[in-house]
């Protein structure tokens, strides 16, 4: 158990009378990058919200860093970047980060801005940034205070390939220092960059394995084909 940063057992979530997550179980090892992949609307965001503890769950349990998800002691240890950038449009990038840093008691504003390559935009209003830049500003907030667990909902959407490459390098650098990352994406070509994959479809876990393990199991080299193979054999 101590090797797992996040464990979910028989997790169920219903929203508006509809089952969004049905009997989801998995374990995420510490110091790894886990990709949460699946089509739009399959329950990725709900699952991530359950991990950070803002989602009311209907059954099962989620344990994060040895405590139940949402525990007070976890609030210093988790960095969370929502799908829609959670930054104040009417503040500059630096003002926004300084505010969240004050809430967290963190002091590494310049460092995280360098990590997401926004240092030269520090004095720009968030509202004037491009979509991709705004997403990176939101990612920077999640990085504040070097959290043990980073939960990132589609962090690379709308980024050019060079920046995407830089961010994946950053994710693996963080994982090498012991940080656990859960990164969601609906783009299959990001799957190969992850240490582990969690395929989600219709609120169920379709696969929980390493990329190599999935290729071996399905006999497909391409991970998108592997996903399709699993969908077909589950049907």
């Amino acid at each position: 158990m101590t090797n797992s940063a996040v464990t979910a057992t028989a997790l169920r979530v219903a929203r508006g009378g509809r089952e969004v997550l049905r009997d989801v179980g998995f374990a995420i090892p510490r110091g790894s990058v886990t990709g949460l992949l699946g089509p739009s609307g399959c329950g990725k965001t709900t699952l991530l919200r359950a991990v950070v503890g803002v989602q009311a769950i209907t059954g099962g349990a989620v344990e994060v860093l040895g405590r139940p998800a949402g525990h007070t002691a976890l609030r210093h240890k988790i960095g969370y970047a929502t799908q829609n950038p959670a930054v104040y449009a009417d503040l500059t990038v630096a003002e926004c980060l300084r505010y969240f840093a004050a809430v967290l008691g963190a002091g590494d504003v310049d460092q995280v801005l360098r990590d997401v390559d926004l240092l030269d935009h520090a004095d720009h209003l968030v509202g004037t940034l491009s979509g991709g830049q705004r997403g990176r500003a939101s990612l920077a907030v999640a990085l504040l205070g070097s959290p043990e667990l980073l939960v990132l909902d589609e962090p690379t959407v709308g980024l050019d390939p060079v920046l995407r490459e830089d961010l994946w390098t950053l994710f693996h650098r963080l994982a090498a220092t012991g940080t656990t990352l859960i990164v969601s994406s609906h783009v299959m070509d990001e799957a190969a960059r992850c240490d582990r994959l969690l395929f989600l479809r219709d609120g169920r876990v379709l696969a929980d394995d390493t990329p190599a393990g999935l290729r071996a199991e399905t006999g497909e080299q391409d991970l998108e084909q592997a996903f399709l193979h699993l969908v077909r054999s589950a049907a």
Partner: peptide, 13 residues
Amino acid sequence: TTATLERLMTMPM
């Protein structure tokens, strides 16, 4: 209605 409240609620706020 923006995600900032959700983010603050995951923080020691």
